[in-house]
Amino acid sequence: NKFNKEMRNAYWEILLLPNLNEQQKRAFIRSLYDDPSQSANLLAEAKKLNDAQA
Rank of each mutant, 00 (worst) to 15 (best):
E13M: 11
P36R: 05
Q38N: 08
Q38M: 08
Y33H: 04
A40L: 13
I29G: 04
Q53Y: 10
L42A: 08
A40I: 06
A27Y: 09
N19I: 04
L17R: 02
K25E: 01
Y33Q: 02
D51Y: 12
D51A: 10
D35F: 07
R26E: 02
E22A: 11
E13Y: 05
D34A: 09
N41F: 07
E6A: 03
K5D: 06
N41E: 07
E13V: 15
I14P: 00
A54I: 06
N9A: 15
M7S: 04
L32R: 00
L42V: 13
L42F: 10
W12L: 08
L15V: 15
K5V: 03
F28A: 07
Q24W: 05
N9L: 05
E45A: 13
N9Q: 14
K25I: 05
W12A: 11
A27R: 10
R30I: 08
K47D: 02
L49H: 09
A46R: 00
N50T: 01
N50Y: 01
A40Q: 11
K48A: 06
Q38L: 14
K25Y: 02
F3P: 15
K48W: 15
Y33W: 05
L49G: 02
N21Q: 13
S37Q: 11
M7V: 07
Y11A: 06
F28T: 03
L20S: 00
D51K: 06
L42N: 05
I29D: 00
L42E: 02
Q23D: 07
L49R: 08
L16E: 07
K25W: 02
A46I: 02
A44F: 14
L20Q: 00
E6P: 05
M7Q: 13
D34F: 13
A52P: 06
S39P: 08
I14D: 00
E6I: 04
L17Y: 07
N19M: 06
L32Q: 02
L16H: 13
N4K: 03
L20H: 00
A10F: 04
M7Y: 06
R26I: 09
S37M: 09
F28K: 02
N50E: 04
A44S: 12
P36N: 05
R8F: 05
N21L: 05
F3L: 08
K2T: 15
L15K: 15
M7D: 03
A44G: 11
Q23E: 15
I29M: 03
L17A: 05
E22D: 14
D34Y: 09
K48Q: 14
F28E: 00
L42M: 11
A27D: 15
F28P: 00
L17G: 00
Y11P: 01
P36T: 05
R26P: 01
A40P: 08
S31N: 12
D35A: 06
Q24S: 05
S39L: 13
A40G: 08
E6N: 03
N41V: 06
D34N: 07
D51Q: 15
F3K: 02
A46L: 03
L17I: 03
A46Y: 02
L43Q: 08
Q24N: 10
D35R: 08
Q23R: 06
I14H: 00
K5A: 07
L17K: 03
F3D: 06
Q23F: 12
K2S: 14
A44D: 14
M7E: 15
F3I: 12
F3G: 05
D34Q: 10
L16Q: 11
N41P: 03
F28M: 09
E22W: 03
N4E: 15
A44Q: 08
A27Q: 14
L32D: 00
E45V: 14
E45H: 13
L15A: 07
K25N: 00
K25D: 00
N4H: 10
L15G: 03
W12D: 12
L42K: 10
Q23T: 13
N9V: 11
W12K: 15
Y11H: 09
Q53S: 11
Y11G: 02
E6F: 03
E13A: 15
M7A: 13
Y33E: 02
R30S: 14
R26Q: 10
N1M: 02
R8P: 01
D35Q: 14
L43D: 00
D35G: 06
N21K: 07
E6Q: 04
A52D: 15
S31E: 12
P18K: 13
I29V: 11
S39H: 15
N1S: 04
N41Y: 05
N1A: 02
E45L: 07
F3Q: 05
L43F: 04
A46N: 00
A10E: 01
M7K: 01
S31Y: 04
K25Q: 04
K5P: 13
N21T: 12
L42W: 13
R30E: 11
L32K: 00
L32M: 07
A44R: 12
L17T: 02
L16Y: 14
K47E: 04
N41H: 11
Q53L: 14
F3Y: 07
L43W: 03
R8M: 14
K47P: 00
Q38E: 11
N1E: 07
K47L: 07
E22L: 06
L43S: 11
D35K: 04
K2A: 10
K5S: 02
E6L: 04
K48M: 12
L17W: 03
A10D: 02
F28Y: 10
L42D: 01
R30L: 05
Q53P: 07
R8G: 04
Y33T: 04
L15S: 09
S39E: 01
N4M: 03
A10M: 03
L43E: 03
L32E: 00
A54W: 11
N41S: 11
S37W: 12
N21H: 12
A54L: 07
N41K: 13
I29Y: 08
N4W: 10
L17E: 01
L20W: 00
L49W: 12
P18D: 07
P36H: 06
S31M: 10
Y11M: 06
Q53H: 13
R30Q: 08
L15I: 13
Q53T: 11
L15M: 07
N41G: 11
Q38D: 05
L43N: 04
N50I: 01
A46M: 01
E45S: 11
K48L: 15
N9T: 10
N4V: 03
L32W: 03
P18Y: 05
R30K: 11
Y33N: 05
A52E: 09
L49D: 05
R26F: 07
L43H: 05
R8A: 11
F3V: 03
N4R: 02
K48I: 10
A27S: 14
L15E: 02
N1G: 13
R8T: 12
N9F: 11
L49T: 14
N19Q: 06
E6R: 01
M7G: 02
L32V: 08
Q38H: 12
A40H: 14
A46E: 00
L16A: 15
Q23S: 15
D35P: 01
K5I: 02
I14N: 00
N1Y: 00
S31P: 04
L17H: 09
N50R: 02
A46S: 08
K48N: 13
W12F: 14
L15W: 06
Q24I: 12
N41R: 11
K25F: 03
S37P: 04
S37A: 11
D35V: 10
W12R: 15
K5M: 02
Q24P: 00
N1W: 00
W12H: 15
N1I: 09
N4A: 02
A54S: 13
L32I: 06
Q23M: 10
S31D: 12
M7R: 01
L49V: 08
N19G: 11
S39F: 14
S31L: 09
N19S: 08
Q24F: 04
L15D: 01
K2V: 06
N21I: 15
R8E: 15
N50V: 02
Y11I: 15
Q24D: 11
P18I: 07
A10W: 03
Q24K: 02
F3S: 03
S37F: 12
E6G: 01
R30F: 10
Q38K: 15
S39M: 14
D51T: 13
K48H: 13
A10Y: 02
L42R: 13
L42G: 02
N50L: 01
L43G: 03
F3W: 14
A44T: 15
N1H: 04
K47Q: 09
L16I: 05
D51W: 13
S39K: 10
L16P: 02
N4Q: 04
P36D: 03
N9K: 15
E45G: 10
E22G: 12
Q24R: 06
Y33S: 03
K5H: 05
S39D: 01
M7P: 01
Q53D: 13
Q53G: 12
E6D: 07
I14K: 00
K48S: 11
N1R: 01
N4L: 07
A52R: 12
N21P: 04
I14V: 07
A40S: 10
Y11L: 08
N50S: 08
L43A: 11
E13Q: 11
M7N: 02
D34I: 15
S31Q: 10
N50M: 02
K5E: 11
F28N: 01
K48V: 14
A52F: 14
D51F: 12
P18L: 05
P18W: 02
L49Q: 02
A27I: 09
D35L: 04
A44E: 12
N4F: 06
L49M: 11
I29E: 02
K5Y: 04
Q38Y: 09
W12Q: 12
L42Y: 09
A54Q: 12
I29K: 03
N21M: 14
N21A: 08
L32A: 02
Q38F: 08
F3T: 03
N21D: 12
K2D: 12
N21V: 06
R26D: 07
L42Q: 04
D35H: 03
R30T: 10
I14A: 01
L17F: 13
E13D: 07
K47G: 05
L20R: 00
K47F: 09
P36W: 06
Q23V: 12
A40V: 13
R26G: 05
L17N: 02
A54Y: 13
E6T: 03
N41D: 13
S37N: 10
E13L: 07
R30H: 09
E22V: 06
S31W: 12
M7F: 15
D34L: 04
I29H: 06
K5Q: 14
N41W: 10
P36G: 08
L16R: 13
N50A: 09
Q23K: 10
K2P: 03
N9Y: 14
P36L: 03
R8V: 05
D34G: 12
D51N: 14
K48F: 14
E22M: 06
S39W: 03
A44P: 01
A52I: 15
L17V: 01
E22I: 05
N19R: 09
A27P: 03
D35I: 09
D34M: 12
A10L: 05
A27G: 12
E6S: 01
A10T: 11
E13G: 09
E45Q: 10
E6V: 01
N4D: 14
A46K: 00
E6H: 02
L16K: 15
N41I: 07
Y33R: 07
Y33L: 04
K2E: 15
W12E: 15
A10I: 09
Y11D: 01
